[in-house]
Computed example of a mutant assay.
Amino acid sequence: MGASDSLQSKPVEPHAPEVPSGRMADAAYTTMRKKILDNVWPAGFQATEGDVATELSMSRTPVREALMKLQQEGLIKVTPRHGMQVLPISPEDMEQIYQILTSLESTAAELVAERGLDDEALKPLIEATEAMDQALKVDDLDAWAVADEQFHTHLLMLCGNEYLRGVVLNFWDRAHRARMVTLRMRPKPIHSTREHIELVAAIRAGDAALAGSAQRAHRKRAGTELLSLLKRLGLSRL
């Protein structure tokens, strides 16, 4: 048997398709960030790099890349040989975050109104307000929170300014973390739902000034309500 015959007689081992490390790191980042923002990993939660890799069924390399990115965003602290720890959000942090959201989301609302979009383009906003209203009727706060998040996400998508959208989404996610902790501690969000409906009406009318003021009033009220609750409960960190 010649050398070529010997080579051809060996079975070919199947190879699993390789997944680019960057894609795995993105998946690790997305999963870990969601766990933090949804308080599955609450403030103070600690885990080693190996523990996280095991939980996500990944190697350590993409997990390490994701940890560095989350640390840059201020969500965790990474300590060599000790792993990571989820950092808390203080009421002072929340106050500053709501100041940013109040200003930039008001601008986003004005931009959407100025675009003169028809009802088909505004359908995601309209459907989100309807979902919020329906969720309140059946006392489903989790469904309400999902619809509320969809509303704000679509508002930013429709504003046409990707830089503004990116900044707001980063801080909106952090506010989401505090809001989910206090979701069932706050009054039923009837006011919030009505304010979203009023904002959609202003946008449909093409009234940028009214849309901006409506969103500004909504954010200020929501921020005051949240901060007052944190103070009343004595919550110094979330």
Rank of each mutant, 00 (worst) to 15 (best):
A147E: 03
L158W: 12
L125D: 11
K123D: 14
I36Q: 03
H218Q: 04
A147K: 04
W144K: 12
S6D: 12
D148R: 08
E130I: 13
D173A: 09
E130M: 07
L7A: 12
P124S: 09
L227P: 15
M94H: 10
L75Q: 02
T224L: 03
R221W: 14
E225D: 09
L136N: 05
E55H: 08
A121V: 11
V200S: 09
H191V: 08
D5C: 14
S228R: 05
L136I: 07
Q150V: 15
R23Y: 02
R184L: 09
D148A: 10
A205V: 02
M180I: 15
E110S: 08
V200F: 08
T54Q: 15
A201Q: 12
V19F: 09
A131M: 03
L238E: 06
S59G: 09
A28P: 02
H82S: 11
L125T: 11
V167G: 04
L183G: 05
A109W: 04
S90H: 08
E73A: 07
E127Q: 08
T61W: 01
Y29E: 04
V12L: 13
A222Q: 07
V146K: 14
D93N: 14
R174H: 04
S192Q: 08
A128Y: 03
W172D: 12
G166E: 07
E114C: 01
G74R: 03
I36Y: 02
H152M: 04
A145L: 06
K188H: 08
D173C: 05
E120W: 01
E49A: 06
F171R: 07
L56I: 05
M1T: 14
D140A: 09
E55R: 11
W172G: 04
D207F: 06
L155H: 06
P187Q: 11
L158E: 05
S21T: 05
A211Y: 06
A217Y: 01
Y163N: 07
T153P: 01
T153F: 10
V86R: 00
D142A: 11
Y29Q: 02
K77L: 10
A209T: 15
F171G: 00
K123E: 14
M84A: 15
T182C: 11
L238R: 00
E127T: 13
L199V: 04
P42V: 13
I100V: 06
M84V: 12
L67M: 11
D38W: 03
